[in-house]
Design a protein around this nucleic acid. Sequence first.
DNA 1: ATGACGATGCACT
DNA 2: GTGCATCGTCATG
Length: 154
Amino acid sequence: MIVELEAYHHTEAAAHSFGGVTDRNAVMFGPAGYAYIYRSYGLHWCVNFVCERAGSAAVLIRAVDPATGIALMRRRRGLAEKRLLCSGPGRLTQAMGVTRAHNGLPLDEAPFSLISRPDKPDIVTGPRIGITKATNLPWRYGLAGSPHLSKPLR
DNA sequence: ATGACGATGCACT
DNA sequence: GTGCATCGTCATG
């Protein structure tokens, strides 16, 4: 269950799509419903869901509350307690085996599968993490009180 | 061709 | 809280 994400839009300088199309961010300029994957700090993979909102936009998936496949995730991540399996954008891709190979793949087809939750979650917002530009925008969204957030949020 | 810099995570103090 | 691993991307020359 996704418990944390951040929104990015080409009109603000923190977005990878700010400044136009490049080889890396090209997927962000395509239709909604596709995965945009990028390499972070030369080490980690991070996954975005491309969204259309009057321009190029995407949400960075930052934390997941693992429900199934926990043994496999533990194996991929090394001995990690459940709380730390998917609590971070680089951690969750490692746990789920997401890499550059998934860049540009549709989110409604295997190996992806998204299921909407039946209830209205209690969401809290705050400033986005790890950026130096457009730091004023409160575009980080988290499930209130979840222990699986990458960082506390209130 | 080269250099600066990350939408991070982990070990350690 | 600090230090560092590690390399693709993009701007510059």
